[in-house]
Design a protein around this nucleic acid. Sequence first.
DNA 1: CTGAAAGCGCTTACAG
DNA 2: CTGAAAGCGCTTACAG
Lengths: 363, 363
Amino acid sequence: MRNLNGRKSAPTINDIADEAQVSKSTVSLVLKNSPKIKLKTAERVLLAAKKLGYVYNRSAASLRQNSSNIIGLVFSDLQNPFFVELLIGAERILPKSGFTTFMAHTNENLATQNHVLNSMREHNVAGIILCAALNTPNTVPSTIRSWGIPLVVAMRPLEDAESDFVGPNNIEGMTMATHHLIERGHTRIAFIGRHASSYIVSNQRIQGYRNAMAAAHLPVNEDWIIDAGPSYDGGRQGLAKLNALTTRPTATVCYNDAVALGVLSELDFLGLRAGRDLAVVGFDGVAGTAHSSPPLTTISIGPSHLGEVASQLLLERIRTPEARTEPITYLSTPRLIIRQSSSSTFFSENDALLPTKMNDIPL
Amino acid sequence: MRNLNGRKSAPTINDIADEAQVSKSTVSLVLKNSPKIKLKTAERVLLAAKKLGYVYNRSAASLRQNSSNIIGLVFSDLQNPFFVELLIGAERILPKSGFTTFMAHTNENLATQNHVLNSMREHNVAGIILCAALNTPNTVPSTIRSWGIPLVVAMRPLEDAESDFVGPNNIEGMTMATHHLIERGHTRIAFIGRHASSYIVSNQRIQGYRNAMAAAHLPVNEDWIIDAGPSYDGGRQGLAKLNALTTRPTATVCYNDAVALGVLSELDFLGLRAGRDLAVVGFDGVAGTAHSSPPLTTISIGPSHLGEVASQLLLERIRTPEARTEPITYLSTPRLIIRQSSSSTFFSENDALLPTKMNDIPL
DNA sequence: CTGAAAGCGCTTACAG
DNA sequence: CTGAAAGCGCTTACAG
């Protein structure tokens, strides 16, 4: 506990060994709960550790083992609550595993993403869950694997045949969303939110939309597929484009919830209302959609569930590195959540909950 | 690059030293850009490092230096976009400093927070920015400092006289919010969102509300200070309580934006509208408030700016540990953002932007 | 401006 | 079931 200068330094396993009258090998084994050590000895060691205020030195262990207990979670956009929910799912799994999870946020910036990944490599992380930034090169996953670091790609697929992937079934989800509107009697249905920055996802969701329309023998006017960024503002601008169409659709599916909420916001600004003047369906199922005006019909793809699955898959890969089987792709099954934004008549779903006379509410 | 078993291992500074024909001390100095090394030599070393595909081993450096290059950011609730904006501010500052930032999320759970903090200690982090979970004991900051880890507490103050703190000026902010409503002619103004889980903040904001009322010689009916959790649902329930009052207030300030958005949502559900049927003002200034229906008047406390300030302060503390001066408290100056939720007449602010005749919009 | 040497705190065969 | 010894890859005085 004293180094050469006589300065006090933190206690090490050597100090514990002295205190407990055992060798430091024994201390090390006790600290990792090895069954090789007699219970009595282990108790004595643990007591000594506690008495000395011992703190395990992860740097030393990582150096020795050539691997840390850190699992890195890389997020592209935590402003999107979707990813936060995925994070929460991951944290239901990872802490129990003995690993520590450290997140990094790239804010959709490729340079930041490179920096973060390199940093994780330097820190010898045990594994990485990557929610890739927009325009991430398809080579990134194979690069990470070449470092010997187990990797699970989440949410945005990259064109990489060797990576494990966990995400939503975009095609099926958007088919459900579109089908829901068709069931409600709509025939002129738009898709707001085609964009190039995450073109695989965008294309898959558009494909789902087309599939549903085709299944119902409904024509798709190409003007109905509206370019818009995957954001609030994209939604607002997308609605403006929709309103400018000569034969205006009566309903729209949206690339994601952010786009849909932007559409709702712009509708409101124009004195219009989703569910009455335009049926609107979102995609993702983030918590905020329950509180918009009106509440948003959306496709829930189970973000926290995806976080759990990604974590479990990564843990398996870390624990059995030799058992490298075929890459696994897990697509969650989407679920339709019907709320008022797709109602043809406002409040149609919640009549039972409504005060019978508005006047009953004290103003 | 080969260990005793003949297995290929990653190149180390020894390998670089061999390759570049220098000692490993020289390599180490080159890697940290020491001015002691001749340019020519440094170039040769860097070239060798590149050729060998060298990766810096942070675990070894941390062990040797007894400190890592990691700065830990601990967040209590990333579902609240406020904290994400703070994070983004921090990331504008920290990466330039040569430190790596790793976040952890406690989800307002004290056990998780303890676990995360201990883990950061074991990893020898260089410093911590702590957005403390609800009900965090006041002793936590001094514990962290006793570990020798520089700490900045952000957002939620703890009763700890020795800690640096960065947060909003809650009293001033809520005074502004209330004053704004008074200026618009309201006299019966409620406060929705008193709660015990973060009582210091709650009390400060209520104090700001009282100050503004007192300054205008307006009485405060204690019923107007409404208990509600700091969340969407809290806002919804808070509005219900407000509506049940015999003499109903005509306006309300809210503990934060989440509460205010909950109020908006519940108003909408009741067929009412903020700005017309009840003036509503939020607090925090998160991005989503620009897109609610109607857009929310709120107090912006500059979350990303707070992230920047907290980071700069922490970096100073890390760099000059000896210069331990008085603890610093930085309170950001709040700013009122006027939108439609506090208008007495709907759309009053945006008349210029409105289509003159609704019929002009192609439906 | 550069090199030789010591040591940070662990873990891991290996021996007994 | 436990101990003695080697070594992970760095950094840092110190010497020259």
